[in-house]
Amino acid sequence: MHDDTTAIEAEALRKRYGDTDALAGLDLTVPAGTVCGLLGPNGAGKSTAVRVLTTLLRPDAGTARVAGVDVLRHPGRVRARIGLVGQHTALDEVLSGRQNLVLFGRLHHLGGARARARAAELLARFDLTDAAERPVGTYSGGMRRRLDLAASLILDPPVLFLDEPTTGLDPRARAQVWDAVRRLVADGTTVLLTTQYLEEADQLAHTIRVVAAGRVIAAGTPEQLKTALGGDRVDVVLTRADDLDRAVRVVGAAVAATPLVDAAGLRLSVGVSGRVAALGAVLRALDDAGLTAADVVVRRPTLDEVFLKLTGGHRHTAVKVSA
């Protein structure tokens, strides 16, 4: 039964290409007004899931609803309620930014006056008014992406799908897109985000679903995933390469765990429980062994580390973290 507080829901989605299961029983629930990050290695099924949910691909089995509408029974009604930003911009580079948006409005059957008014609204919303009359071919990567976002919102859809929206952008342009997404969500838009940038998911997503081999293998908030799957870590940066092997033995013995070693960076990192006690034990052990460290810190794991731990093998066990 559909819940009005749920914007996207999928159950047991399956899609097979030849001998390959692109989706192998994928389940997904996204609350309205939130960002859900869909993460996974290449070939995990992320883009296939987006194509199914946006009516571009019919699944072999399973059910899905978007904005309260059944994807298989009423694809036209779904398309009227969603926006989609793919990995590549869908803009005419010869036309100006304003002309592009008016064109999209007309393609969506808005009248000429309404299309022009909507274009002006969106140009202002995405800080593009000053560049509105310039050909899109003169825009920076970040400006094009913001215009692409604007084009996806011509009909003011309640649900927006972002499929790797910042691929190839520099850090400044990526941050601009992040700000635009945050403003959309603050206004009530629901976003399903696929990305290869773990920092992007950490910054934007309220919840995360990690996908591998066509199904969800972990679910929760970024902090829940870090806590449940990563624990705290102590990092030690040494001053001399000759001390590295001995430091690995000393630190490992102090916390009863095997450190990971970055020889080039003279760094070792070890998972611990009891962050304060573990940090004290490492500092005492280094001091007793006469080892000098340039830096010793205790930190939370990164989402990159959680992701690598979850997807590093060929066999995957589902992990559910209560949200």
Rank of each mutant, 00 (worst) to 15 (best):
L193D: 04
I82W: 03
R16H: 11
L283M: 13
R275F: 03
D92A: 04
L198G: 03
L53P: 07
D304N: 14
G76K: 10
V71T: 10
N42H: 08
V297H: 13
A213L: 14
T221V: 00
L291V: 11
I217S: 09
G105K: 10
A120I: 09
G45D: 01
V210K: 07
G230A: 00
G111V: 02
A241L: 14
L91R: 09
R172F: 12
D202H: 07
L13D: 06
H314K: 08
P259H: 03
K320F: 10
H314P: 07
G220H: 15
V177R: 09
T167I: 14
L13P: 02
D304F: 13
R73P: 02
Q99T: 07
A213R: 15
A113C: 01
T166N: 09
V210M: 10
L204S: 03
G68T: 02
E199V: 04
A180F: 04
V85F: 08
D242V: 12
A61T: 06
G68W: 00
D148N: 04
V297D: 08
Q203M: 09
L279H: 11
R14N: 09
P135E: 09
A228R: 15
G188H: 08
R284W: 05
T221N: 03
D295Y: 08
H108T: 03
T167H: 03
D163P: 08
H316E: 07
L198W: 14
D304R: 15
R300H: 13
V276N: 05
A80C: 07
L184K: 01
R172D: 11
A254P: 11
G188Y: 12
V272A: 08
P222L: 15
A241W: 11
A241N: 10
A64P: 09
D245F: 07
L84A: 10
A277R: 03
R118T: 01
T5P: 10
K46H: 04
R145P: 02
L103S: 14
P171Q: 07
R215A: 15
M143A: 03
T311E: 08
Y197A: 00
V234R: 14
H2V: 14
G18R: 07
T29D: 13
L193H: 04
E164F: 05
